[in-house]
Write a protein that binds this DNA or RNA. Sequence first.
DNA 1: TATAGTTGTCTATATCAATAGACATTTAAA
DNA 2: TTTAAATGTCTATTGATATAGACAACTATA
Lengths: 243, 243
Amino acid sequence: MAGQVQRQTGVALWRQIADRIRQAISAGAYDETGMVPPETVLALQFGVNRHTVRSAIAALAQEGIVRAVQGRGTLIERKERLNFPITKRTRFTAGIGGQAREMRGLLLGHSEERADEEVARWLKLRPGAPVIRMETVRKADDRPVSCATTWFPADRFAGMPAAYEKTESITRAFAELGLSDYVRATTEVTAAHADAADLAALELTPGAIVLITKAMNTDLEGVPVQYAISRFSADRVQFTIEN
Amino acid sequence: MAGQVQRQTGVALWRQIADRIRQAISAGAYDETGMVPPETVLALQFGVNRHTVRSAIAALAQEGIVRAVQGRGTLIERKERLNFPITKRTRFTAGIGGQAREMRGLLLGHSEERADEEVARWLKLRPGAPVIRMETVRKADDRPVSCATTWFPADRFAGMPAAYEKTESITRAFAELGLSDYVRATTEVTAAHADAADLAALELTPGAIVLITKAMNTDLEGVPVQYAISRFSADRVQFTIEN
DNA sequence: TATAGTTGTCTATATCAATAGACATTTAAA
DNA sequence: TTTAAATGTCTATTGATATAGACAACTATA
């Protein structure tokens, strides 16, 4: 994890260092001791003052990733990265499956609106067609993993928000509405800094990274049934694509 | 592109704004005029002082993305986000294909070493087996798109570095070494802040995000021939997964 | 019960980031 | 040739970031 931090780039040193330590923890670099190296050692490694390292560690403690104990050191509290397979049969709940005890989808809000150009294109509707929009957060063992904006054709899935709120799962909600099976047609993946809404929904701190997927599901006849823009905390998930 | 910028996060406002404008340009938000909105308008949009916007634009001008002209406005010079499909037949050169005039792979360095646990697992070798490691950068029209660390079984592909340096492509290098076809077996995707080496290789600024893929290719019998960890500039690419 | 090693707190100083306002300079269009 | 609209430059001030040093407080262990 050597490599120097860079100055005068608009990114504070303490944030660069926090990001590097977070990544090192994820990669298992400190698994032997379960602790982050002493502040003086890190300061030397990164070529900065000890106080700068302290700012970085304070940020990580704020995220709940480490806990500093006076006299002992800085203990690693949490270290999670869920694997999320993307396949023809991608389902959030089943996908995370055995990796967490409890999976829940929470409905933050919903509305009926007219499809804009992007949504219409993905759902193969005409622009202005009525669609149901839902804002959701998905949690694994009560830790938010992703939040999503999802659109459904309104004529076919008017009862979606209620069904989702009841079942806490898209798959089960589809089943309630008479769609027993569906397949993932396309997924686009990008990454960006989380915006304010995502930070709040995913309980992240500014500067955090989100993996963004834009995905379209179809029924077995190939008719689009759902278009979703999901934001995943990059620290907590990885995607796997099996071909 | 509304949404406010965030203060006291360790990421300077001018950098947040630069990132947002870069992304808006990529998304085609200013395609009608070919210009970025006036500084005073942006300052109002983001809720910051005009000087802060000027810092952001100066950074983008430094990257060669925009060019400010006194009296006229700020012109968009370049606007790239390459789409990179991930399929069974994923090939970097062909994948980016029609989206750039010229595709090149550059060999930064290589060595023969013993497989560590991770590499051995992916290549289905025993730990300690000899492998060839290559560090490469891939460029589209001379702009770096990704950098990669790649491992090959040493017994089978000893001539890989030389072949890659000559052909500037993994596919063509494999062909030279007698492997005419191969398929993508698995791809893992994550995102993280770029580390110092990636920043240099990809000509990015600190705080930039990289999409990271870990991918394994096999020959047509299913024998692993290549394991690669690639880092893509998140500002310059997106992935598409077709199922 | 010392002692080494660690985190916590305090003061002080220098540099970067951001705001504020005024005015110059250039361009394009009226 | 004006004029409006845009970028360029300058000065000044405030708050965040980073460094520096000293010492307190706590933990584990010899």
